[in-house]
Design a protein around this nucleic acid. Structure first.
Length: 303
DNA sequence: AAAGTGTGCAACCGCACAGTG
DNA sequence: ACACTGTGCGGTTGCACACTT
């Protein structure tokens, strides 16, 4: 049985989102919270399909996203989780607050894969490359299931596991390999704090979207603050984004320049008045130094 | 400086699952 | 049980930018 397209594609815009579209989507979600995605484009005045709106929001506009390259710690976590879970990016992402499956998937394909190969490790099996050529690729079979197969095979045929962090990690998964650290333990700890797993992210209501009253006096890319708030264990972030050896990273991290950040939300909030937003929305927003992921190009300059 | 090539990432596509009537 | 809708997920693509020649 063929599925109907998620939306009528006639007349719908595709390709990169414009600043204006972003603004519309943000304003809509700030006003209404996340609701039925199919209805979002219509209600928000966007010529996009709902799916595209959801993707844009979850991968780029969501206020709880971190930006910038993954830290070494996060990278190691991804590698380890991948060894256990395979290409279940969403699940992996659920263990890395502020990271999206798309981001992790991209990072895996562009960075980690190469890194592992360079180290002589097969990124599919997580075993030494020399040994993978002769051994039956159990791990690969488990992890690298053809399109759509992942869900239809053992992984998700079992009764739906509670998607709560590593609680869903099966004993079988746990028995596989020997992680460099114990993500289970890590996740248990994380679950005990106010952090979240993307699996568990509730629908965001307008009053739940938090906006910083003022940027931190330190560099806004000082993720350690955020980590402190989350009370994550022994999470070492670069104290300054300039410590990154990667110029590209520097550039991206600098997108979180205090000024930009301040202007971003300040402008947004001032703009929102034009949309006749409920004033009650404004005050609770000014609460928490949550970061918004807008990049240089957009940086709300259009506001 | 220009052309060619490589890289990274945002976005799209299509499938599967869950929920509902 | 079935049809249908909405959503989530993973794979893939295309483009912009960086780098090299």
């Amino acid at each position: 049985m063929g599925r109907q397209p998620c939306c009528d594609k006639v007349g719908l815009k595709k390709g990169p989102w414009t600043a204006e579209e972003d603004q519309k989507l943000i304003n809509f979600i700030l006003t209404n919270g996340q609701c039925c995605w199919r209805a979002v484009p219509k209600l928000a005045g966007l010529l996009r399909c709902g799916k595209s709106c959801r993707l844009r929001w979850t991968n780029y506009l969501r206020p709880d996203l971190k930006r910038g390259l993954l830290s070494e710690y996060e990278e190691q976590m991804v590698i380890d989780l991948h060894a256990q879970l395979g290409n279940r990016w969403a699940k992996i992402a659920s263990h890395l607050p502020g990271r999206t499956d798309n981001e992790i998937k991209n990072h895996w394909n562009t960075h980690i894969k190469k890194k592992l190969k360079k180290m002589g490790i097969d990124p599919l099996t997580h075993k030494a490359l020399s040994s993978t050529t002769t051994e039956p690729q159990q791990s690969q079979q488990k992890n690298q299931v053809s399109k759509g197969g992942l869900k239809s095979q053992a992984v998700d045929k079992s009764p739906k596991e509670p998607e709560t962090s590593l609680q869903s990690t099966t004993s079988e998964e746990k028995s596989m390999g020997s992680p460099l650290f114990d993500p289970m333990e890590m996740m248990m700890m994380m679950d005990n704090v106010d952090g979240f797993c993307t699996d568990e992210v509730p629908l965001i209501e307008p009053h739940e979207i938090l906006v910083p009253a003022a940027p931190s006096t330190s560099s806004s890319c000082d993720s350690s603050k955020l980590l402190e708030e989350l009370q994550l264990p022994d999470f070492e972030w670069p104290s300054d984004c300039n410590t990154s050896s990667d110029d590209n990273n520097k550039k991206k991290m600098s997108l979180w320049d205090d000024d930009d950040f301040n202007n971003t939300w300040g402008d947004l909030l001032s703009d929102r008045s034009e949309l006749a937003l409920d004033d009650s929305l404004s005050s609770p927003l000014i609460q928490c130094p949550t970061r918004m992921p807008f990049d240089q190009e957009y940086s709300w300059a259009y506001i």
